[in-house]
Simulated scan of single mutants.
Amino acid sequence: MTENPWTTLKVTPVYENPWIKLEEHDVLNPAGKPGIYGKVHFKNRGMAIIPIDHEGNTWLVGQYRYTLDEYAWEIPMGGGPLGQDFLASAKRELKEETGLSAQKWTEIMKIHTSNSVTDEVAVVYLAEDLSEGETEFEETEVLEIRKLPFSDVLAMVMSGEITDSISVAGILKAARILGF
Rank of each mutant, 00 (worst) to 15 (best):
K91D: 05
L60I: 10
G38M: 14
G56D: 03
Q103H: 13
I162P: 03
S159G: 11
S114I: 12
S151N: 14
L94M: 06
I171V: 08
S131G: 13
G32Q: 12
G133S: 04
L60T: 08
G35Q: 14
F180K: 04
A72W: 11
P76K: 04
P13E: 11
A90D: 02
L28S: 05
E139C: 13
F150Q: 05
F180A: 03
F150K: 02
P76N: 04
L94P: 00
D152M: 10
T118V: 02
P34K: 06
Y15N: 05
I36H: 13
L143D: 03
A155C: 09
Q63A: 09
G38C: 12
V14A: 07
I75H: 09
A174N: 08
A31C: 14
V121R: 07
A122C: 14
K147G: 05
S165A: 15
V157S: 02
E23L: 00
I50P: 11
T67Y: 15
I50Y: 05
A48Y: 08
T8C: 13
G170K: 09
G80C: 06
G160K: 12
G35N: 08
E134C: 14
K39Y: 14
E134N: 08
T7I: 11
A102K: 01
T98F: 10
I52Y: 07
L68S: 13
K110P: 00
H25W: 15
E161L: 15
S151Y: 15
I50D: 04
T163P: 11
G79W: 00
V61R: 03
G78W: 01
E70S: 15
Y71I: 10
E55L: 06
E136T: 07
L172D: 01
K110Y: 07
M47T: 13
S116E: 14
S159W: 02
Y15G: 07
K91M: 10
T98N: 08
N44M: 11
L87H: 05
K43I: 02
